[in-house]
């Protein structure tokens, strides 16, 4: 069973990495996720049913996610709509698009077709299916993490990070911030779509409602990770998000298993997840308030010194 938590957590962590790009690196509250994760899932599901090779289907779920992100980025930058609203718009529109992709059905079962997981179980038939699933998911996650680390260490990636911290710095360097946002949100939602594509194959169906509340859950995972240690190194930031995702999924699992002892049912999980995010935000606020009062004190000291020298 423990393998199940890890596979679930790792698939989820790919989405958390996507949310990490928008919320933390770009500093853009992008809600496209709730829609693009389903787009990725639906795309992979439909393609696999139509006989596409699973790797290609997975790749297409990434591409579908990228398109969703690009649309949000263009609504946000070209029409000067706040990022939050742009994301909500895309997410809402995607609900209809996702139903179309699924052939106007709310649910698409992936029975009797080969998926990443059935393929790997066949190749590694000497291992239990749960273990082979864990191995392939771990490989995919590590590959994505390494590629993402490399990207954000490149000159382009650093510029995207700098824009998240302070947009003026890239404008001053004669770089068009619109292009950086399109790339950033595209990658973010690409990973989210890919995570959806994997999830569909793991659980054996695509569902139009599987994206509900994903952003908040992803944020919760990221924030759990941020409690573990603080860093400014991208390789540690990504590993932190992955660990946070696994912990989050483990919390859900044990909540389901033992929650009844204190009267908690799975129906309460969304409420608890939201409260967890609020708590994390409150703690972060408290920390930065301490920092701010220190900064204010320094400025005040500077002004007083200025007056004295007059």
């Amino acid at each position: 069973m423990i393998e199940g938590i890890f596979v679930d957590g790792l698939i989820f962590s790919i989405m958390a990495l996507g949310i990490l790009i928008s919320f933390r690196i770009l500093d853009l509250a992008d809600l496209t996720c709730d829609g693009s994760v389903v787009t990725g899932a639906a795309t992979a599901g439909v393609l696999i049913i139509n006989g596409w090779p699973v790797t290609l289907a997975l790749l297409m779920s990434f591409v579908a996610g990228v398109l969703c992100g690009v649309i949000t980025a263009l609504i946000h930058t070209k029409l000067k709509v706040p990022g939050l609203l742009a994301g909500i718009l895309t997410m809402t529109m995607l609900y209809s698009v996702n139903l179309r992709i699924l052939g106007n059905k709310a649910n698409l079962p992936l029975l009797k077709v080969s998926t990443v997981y059935t393929n790997v179980a066949r190749i590694l038939s000497f291992l239990p299916a749960a273990v082979s699933s864990l191995i392939i998911t771990l490989l995919i996650t590590v590959l994505i993490k390494v590629l993402m680390d490399m990207f954000f260490r490149s000159d382009l990636g650093l510029c995207i990070g700098a824009m998240g911290g302070n947009e003026q710095t890239v404008i001053s360097m004669a770089i068009n911030p619109t292009i950086l946002k399109v790339i950033g949100l595209g990658l973010s939602n690409g990973l989210i779509g890919l995570s959806g594509g994997l999830l569909t194959q793991y659980q054996g169906f695509a569902d139009v409602n599987l994206g509900q509340g994903m952003v908040v859950q992803g944020l919760a995972a990221i924030m759990i990770g941020e409690f573990i240690f603080s860093t400014n190194k991208i390789s540690l930031i990504t590993i932190r998000a992955i660990i946070g995702s696994i912990i989050y999924k483990a919390l859900l699992f044990y909540g389901r298993k033992y929650g009844y002892l204190i009267g908690i049912t799975p129906n309460d999980f969304k409420l608890l997840t939201g409260l967890l995010v609020i708590l994390s935000l409150a703690v972060a606020k408290l920390k930065s308030a301490q920092g701010n009062s220190l900064a204010k004190y320094k400025v005040l000291k500077g002004i007083l010194q200025k007056k004295e020298t007059r």
Binding site: D155, L156, L158, A174, N232
Partner: peptide, 24 residues
Amino acid sequence: TSPTMSIEDNLIVSSKKGMRGLNF
């Protein structure tokens, strides 16, 4: 400057004008 990044990362961003690629 971008406050959430290290000094070296900031210096890369400001090293030249114009769009960047995937160099390290």
